[in-house]
């Protein structure tokens, strides 16, 4: 296992480096920079010194250096938890992302937990009760979840909450806690507000996972060893848990890595619609204004979380099911 861990870690480090490089270069590719839009705004207001200020601002943000110099400067800063200045408010990126990053991680973790819990229960039920009312209901919910875009569901819930219940379900905490330091009351408020975004963001992932688990479990349940076990008089529960469920659950574990980027990217528009103070809306605005340091930092975090998710899923899979797959090359 040490061999496996070392090899996986060794793959992880250059992967993160390459991702950070590609992300940084792509954000820099469009013509202009974050100062361009600021200067255009100043010129439109009739500010005569706008062009003179452009050079000052470019020097302040380091835009007078080459893109390679800026990249390595930013990357070196990552190790010191210093991601440079954001163009949006001329404040350090780390001051902007602090609470947003934490709230994003909390929200995405809750969403992934929601997806796993709900899809596991419904998926197993649907597979073990094939072609019964519960299975049809689960399939219907699954197709509904896949068909409805998350942001539309968010809009519908906002409307229903406001019109029929008189409550606003936007935001991730009550207004009195915004910009306030963390406290127990604030934690409770965040927990209460997390419910709707978790359901909204998690619905499509849950639907997909239910379909996958149901299909895999049905495949396993039709295999010869299950028939043999049934013929030998094993109880249905033991027969289900001992092998079929263990094998069918592999996609769950394998999806840890894939789920994270899906949930993060899927939550951007929902966060805008529900006014959630997470990374999504800020990333969107950073990309629009070419705030390279801020956007690259966010995307680096997504990449780190994805790569860690992949590592966890691979390690779990290697520990749970270290089987060779037929068709794969065998030994060295």
């Amino acid at each position: 296992m040490l061999n496996y861990v070392a090899r996986r870690l060794l793959l992880m480090i250059p992967t993160l480096f390459v991702i950070s490089l590609i992300v940084y270069m792509i954000i820099n590719m469009p013509p202009g920079d974050c100062v361009t839009s600021q200067i255009e705004e100043l010129l439109s207001r009739g500010d005569a010194d706008a062009l003179a200020r452009a050079d000052e601002l470019r020097a302040l943000y380091g835009l007078d250096h080459s893109v390679w110099y800026r990249y390595f400067n930013w990357l070196g800063g990552v190790f010191r938890w210093d991601f440079g200045l954001s163009c949006q408010d001329t404040v350090p990126v780390k001051a902007l992302i602090g609470e947003r990053l934490m709230l994003t991680i909390v929200m995405e973790s809750c969403t992934i937990l929601f997806i796993w819990t709900v899809s596991f229960v419904i998926g197993v039920y649907a597979a073990t009760h094939q072609y019964q009312v519960g299975d049809y209901a689960a399939s219907f919910i699954g197709f509904l979840g896949l068909a409805i875009p998350n942001f539309l569901l968010a809009l519908v819930l906002l409307y229903v909450g406001k019109v029929y219940f008189g409550v606003s379900i936007g935001g991730l905490m009550d207004p009195e806690f915004i910009e306030k330091p963390m406290s127990w009351d604030k934690v409770v408020s965040i927990a209460q507000h997390l419910v709707i975004p978790t359901i909204v963001i998690g619905t499509s992932g849950t639907a997909g996972m239910i379909r996958r688990l149901r299909a895999n479990l049905l495949d396993e349940l039709q295999k010869q060893y299950v028939v043999t076990g049934r013929a030998k008089g094993l109880s249905p529960f033991k027969l289900l848990v001992k092998y079929p469920l263990r094998h069918a659950i592999n996609p769950f574990v394998a999806d840890i890595g894939h789920l994270l980027p899906e949930v993060v990217s899927g939550s951007v528009i929902v966060s805008v619609v529900l006014s959630l103070p997470t990374m999504g809306p800020m990333l969107l605005s950073a990309l629009k204004t070419q705030d390279v340091n801020l956007a690259a930092t966010f995307l680096l975090f997504v990449a780190v979380l994805t790569v860690i998710g992949m590592l966890i899923s691979d390690l779990l899979l290697a520990a749970l099911d270290p089987r060779i797959r037929f068709g794969a090359a065998g030994e060295k």
Partner: peptide, 13 residues
């Protein structure tokens, strides 16, 4: 059996 590739090829026992 361990493999670092997604298709689980080229691994070792």
């Amino acid at each position: 059996y361990y493999s670092t590739k997604r298709d689980r090829s080229g691994g070792w026992m």
